[in-house]
Amino acid sequence: MGFDHGVRLRDECRKSLGESVRARLEELTGQTLGWYAMEDRSDPGDCCKAVVFGERGLCTAVSRIDTEHRPVYTITGYLLDPTSFRSIEIDYRPTPDRDTAVPDGSEVLGVPGGRELISGLTATVLRVLGNSPPKAQELLQAPFLRGQQVQEQDCGWHYEDSEHHLRVFVVFRAGHRDVTVAVGRRVVPVGHTQRTAHWSLRCYRASVVRHIGR
């Protein structure tokens, strides 16, 4: 997991979206459970994009050029069934000498008893997934292992701070029926490596009731 120095952090990027965009994201998603905003390197105007996950939805705001050649924000995403939410806390604290701890991103553990992975994921997505605790990997993948497709644009992640302390870590997967999200932080204590880092995460799963902006 690399770090880009000099880029704007999520608070600054969020402010650049504008009040109306932030308000619309909040309206669609409800009480926020996890979010990030970041520079969009694919945008020629250096605009930022944002992802917000809440009790009613998972939505993404991305800048586009309208018919009058002006930058505007479009919002896409998934509206969720509030009664379908399930979540679990993961407190992962391996000892410094645990050689079987989280891989360095070179592999993804898949599900217990097999090596099955979600189809359609890029190598970059797999590396980010491969750095998370085994239980988080399992929970993030579980709904998508039986034919539910995930496209590259339906996967996202963000982390920031330093390699020894990720104060912000958010990753999501979305399909036509389910959404999974992990939100939390990672610390590499003294005497540990990234392979034996300590994680504090909450993993969510919810059912999709409607797609918007697609």
Score class of each variant (00 low, 15 high):
G57H: 13
C59Y: 00
T60S: 05
V62Q: 02
S63V: 00
R64S: 00
R64E: 02
I65M: 00
I65N: 01
D66C: 00
T67Y: 01
T67A: 08
T67F: 10
R70K: 01
R70G: 02
R70A: 00
R70Q: 00
P71K: 08
P71C: 06
V72G: 00
V72E: 00
T74S: 02
T76C: 03
T76G: 02
G77T: 00
G77Y: 01
G77N: 02
G77S: 07
G77A: 06
Y78E: 11
L80D: 12
D81W: 11
D81S: 09
P82S: 02
P82W: 13
T83L: 12
T83G: 04
S84D: 08
F85L: 13
F85H: 02
F85T: 10
F85I: 05
F85N: 10
R86D: 08
S87A: 05
I88E: 06
I88M: 03
E89S: 13
E89P: 07
I90A: 08
I90C: 05
D91Q: 04
Y92A: 12
R93A: 15
P94V: 04
T95C: 14
P96M: 04
P96H: 05
D97W: 03
R98T: 07
R98E: 14
R98A: 04
D99P: 08
D99Q: 07
D99T: 15
D99W: 08
T100M: 13
T100P: 09
G105C: 00
S106T: 13
E107D: 04
E107T: 15
L109F: 14
L109A: 04
G110L: 12
V111P: 14
P112F: 02
G113R: 13
G113P: 10
G114Y: 07
G114R: 07
E116M: 08
L117P: 12
G120L: 07
L121Q: 07
T122V: 03
T122A: 06
A123V: 14
T124L: 11
V125T: 13
L126M: 11
L126P: 00
L126R: 10
L126S: 11
R127W: 06
V128W: 12
V128D: 10
L129R: 15
L129F: 11
L129G: 13
L129Q: 13
N131V: 02
N131W: 03
S132V: 15
S132R: 03
S132F: 09
P134M: 02
P134H: 10
A136L: 14
E138A: 03
E138D: 09
L139F: 12
L139Q: 08
L140H: 04
L140I: 01
L140T: 03
L140E: 01
Q141Y: 05
Q141F: 06
A142F: 08
P143Q: 05
P143V: 09
F144Q: 08
F144T: 05
L145G: 15
L145K: 01
G147P: 04
Q148K: 10
Q149K: 14
V150E: 08
E152C: 14
E152A: 05
Q153G: 14
C155R: 03
G156R: 02
G156S: 09
Y159T: 01
D161H: 13
